[in-house]
């Protein structure tokens, strides 16, 4: 494998990381809370997809079409029934509650699916590749993942930039108290944001499950990569998230090429480097407050 190939694989991996990071970034941007169970929800979605694919012999794309709305509904209910009760009580309660949820989900998955590693049956897509010439080839699946990430980001950007609710998202993120005076019900809006967040992370989890094996405890790693992608890209910047994911992906594949054990470590080091040099991230939106 040449270096160019390594970088291309890393860029494509960035698409997957961006999918993980987008929902996290959205929730933090609108509500200023961090969902520590974000990665575990993605693994939950992947297990649901495995169940559907194995039990009903569904194609994984069909399973995706079933699981994503289910997870969005779960997100809506989670916000309405649990997280909205914590509003206005400082930053600690949401952190504690989502941390607790993370542990509950992991243990429930362990109970339900055992500690075995699982994979979503890819139906052959995982080995198909596209020759780009010059000895370079990319996997169709990685390409599709990146494409889906880009489509999700475009969709989200149109939603946030062009629609009435999108404006309400931005206004609430700017200044919740004033947004409430405009008649924006923050609780309903937060529930919608959480539905979007878990819907998107369900896509990420299922793509992860098709790409590689996962187990009940795979969530926290995913959360960490998502965090890193968000921080590298800059909080509040959707496209920054994609760039952050790509940088993290390239760092990991390049590190792994130098020595097989260095991949994850290199990713973390690059993340720390960005944090040192540009703590606000590469594309942080400059906010003026008065």
């Amino acid at each position: 494998m040449g270096w160019l190939d390594t970088v291309v694989q890393g860029l494509l991996l960035g698409g997957l990381y961006a999918l993980f990071a987008t929902g996290l970034s959205l929730i933090f941007g609108v509500m200023r809370i961090v969902n520590l169970a974000h990665g575990d929800f993605s693994i939950l979605a992947a297990f649901l997809a495995v169940m559907l694919v194995d039990a009903l012999a569904l194609h994984w794309l069909l399973a995706l079409a079933v699981v994503v709305p289910l997870m969005a509904l779960l997100g809506y209910l989670l916000q309405r029934l649990v997280l909205n009760r914590l509003l206005g009580r400082g930053i600690l309660p949401p952190i504690l509650v989502t941390f607790g949820l993370s542990i509950i989900i992991q243990n429930a998955l362990l109970e339900a699916f055992s500690a075995d590693s699982r994979r979503v049956n890819p139906g052959g897509i995982d080995t198909a590749s596209l020759a780009l010439g010059g000895g370079l080839a990319v996997g169709w699946f990685s390409l599709i993942t990146l494409l889906v990430a880009i489509l999700v980001l475009i969709g989200l950007q149109l939603f946030i930039g062009r629609t009435r609710r999108g404006r309400a998202f931005r206004a609430t993120a700017d200044d919740q108290a004033t947004a409430a005076l405009m008649g924006i019900d923050d609780r309903g809006l937060y529930a919608l944001a959480m539905a979007l967040s878990l819907g998107i992370v369900a896509i990420a989890g299922i793509f992860l499950g098709v790409r590689t094996t996962f187990a009940f405890g795979s969530g926290p790693d995913r959360l960490l990569f998502a965090f890193e992608a968000v921080i590298i890209g800059g909080l509040g910047s959707l496209w920054g998230t994609l760039v952050g994911g790509a940088i993290l992906g390239v760092a990991q594949t390049v590190g792994a090429k130098l020595s097989p054990g260095w991949g994850i470590l290199t990713g973390h080091l690059v993340f720390l480097g960005v944090l040192l040099v540009r703590p606000q991230g590469l594309f942080a939106r400059q906010r003026r407050r008065d």
Binding site: R170, A171, D174, T178, G183, R287, D290
Partner: peptide, 21 residues
């Protein structure tokens, strides 16, 4: 509100549209 509280992420027109939410 006191101090105007204009939404910085929104354009002038978007600020007006949020008023009509």
């Amino acid at each position: 509100p006191e101090g105007r509280r204009i939404f910085p992420s929104l354009t002038v027109e978007e600020n007006l549209r949020v008023g009509a939410y």
